[in-house]
């Protein structure tokens, strides 16, 4: 039956089974490829992957850096600044658009239009305009994240019932208090969810920017070793990105549960 509930045990078992199936399939494919070519690095064996992990975590004799540390620092800082600025700007603009009709009339059409342009298609334009410094990466993330996130936050504000806003005024709230004490706390879970859902796309925009114009970072390293078909280096980087994405996503979900215990995603209002 559609939406029939399953037990936690079943849920976990099915999740583990899917991951195990991928790992087994990978192992089989790697084994088959190595029967033909023992030096194959397109689908490296687990031993080759481990060697790759060791290589990126130890000091490189030529570059004098630990690749994973240097790349994590560079990519992490770019992501933190780019995504952080985008989130803050989206929040302010999104709330303002949701609260004030004039701001909405002014900004929403432009933001909606921007949101329809594929951000990766604009990367070259951004590079031409701002160069290849930190600003480039921040713009690359912001161009993709900001319009969508601001629109989502605006829609979240729309979902706050008029009755509760009116009631706040009857309780003596000022405009600032209606925003700060009524609207923002109520949209917080939806904002956290919207941010969480934008982490993946933000990483895509950043990595594609790094692929294009970086001398350090995940995108750069993936491009460099990808060209040499050294997937024993590339795959650990991809795995690190997946782990990062999962951890940050889980962190946001945890924050939402802890900060908004009242939130009932399927039941609006009181």
């Amino acid at each position: 039956m559609i939406r029939a509930p399953i037990s936690d045990r079943q849920r976990i078992a099915l999740g583990v089974a899917a991951v195990a199936a991928i790992l087994v399939a990978y192992t089989v494919v790697a084994h088959v490829r190595h029967l033909d070519n023992a030096a194959d690095r397109i689908v490296p064996t687990w031993t080759q992957l481990w060697a790759g992990i060791v290589r990126i975590t130890t000091l490189d004799p030529d570059d004098h850096v630990r690749y994973i540390v240097a790349d994590s620092s560079a990519t992490g800082l770019r992501f933190l600044l780019g995504f952080g600025i985008s989130v803050i700007a989206s929040f302010v603009i999104g709330v303002a658009m949701g609260c004030f009709r004039r701001v909405r009339a002014l900004l929403l059409p432009a933001l909606s239009a921007l949101a329809r342009i594929p951000p990766t298609a604009v990367t070259a334009v951004i590079m031409a305009m701002v160069g290849t410094g930190m600003t480039f990466f921040q713009f690359a993330i912001a161009f993709g994240v900001f319009p969508i996130l601001a629109e989502s936050i605006c829609l979240a504000v729309d979902d706050v019932p008029d009755e509760l806003i009116q009631k706040s005024y009857t309780l003596g709230a000022s405009q600032g208090e209606v925003i700060g004490n009524v609207i923002v706390p109520q949209i917080l879970p939806k904002v956290l969810d919207a941010i969480r859902l934008q982490i993946g796309p933000a990483l895509v925009y950043l990595i594609s920017a790094e692929l294009l114009a970086a001398d350090m970072g995940f995108g750069y390293r993936i491009r460099r070793f990808g060209r040499l078909a050294q997937m024993d280096i590339v795959f650990p980087y991809l795995a690190a990105l997946a782990v990062f994405g999962l951890v940050v996503t889980a962190a946001f979900a945890w924050i939402r549960v802890k900060r908004c215990p009242w939130y009932q995603p399927t039941k609006e209002g009181a």
Binding site: P161, E163, L164, Q166, K167, S168, Y169, T170, L171, G172, A173, S174, E177, N181, V182, P185, Q186, L188, C260, W262, Y263, Q264, G269, A270
Partner: peptide, 30 residues
């Protein structure tokens, strides 16, 4: 709207992010 006129609606009467006690104390705070 004015704080001298209170309203109770059929729906959406309470702030979902506040506990019962906080909901009632909310007006005094504001």
């Amino acid at each position: 709207l004015s704080r001298n006129r209170g309203i109770v609606y059929q729906h959406y009467s309470l702030f979902p992010h506040l506990t019962v006690l906080e909901n009632v104390a909310f007006g005094r705070m504001l």
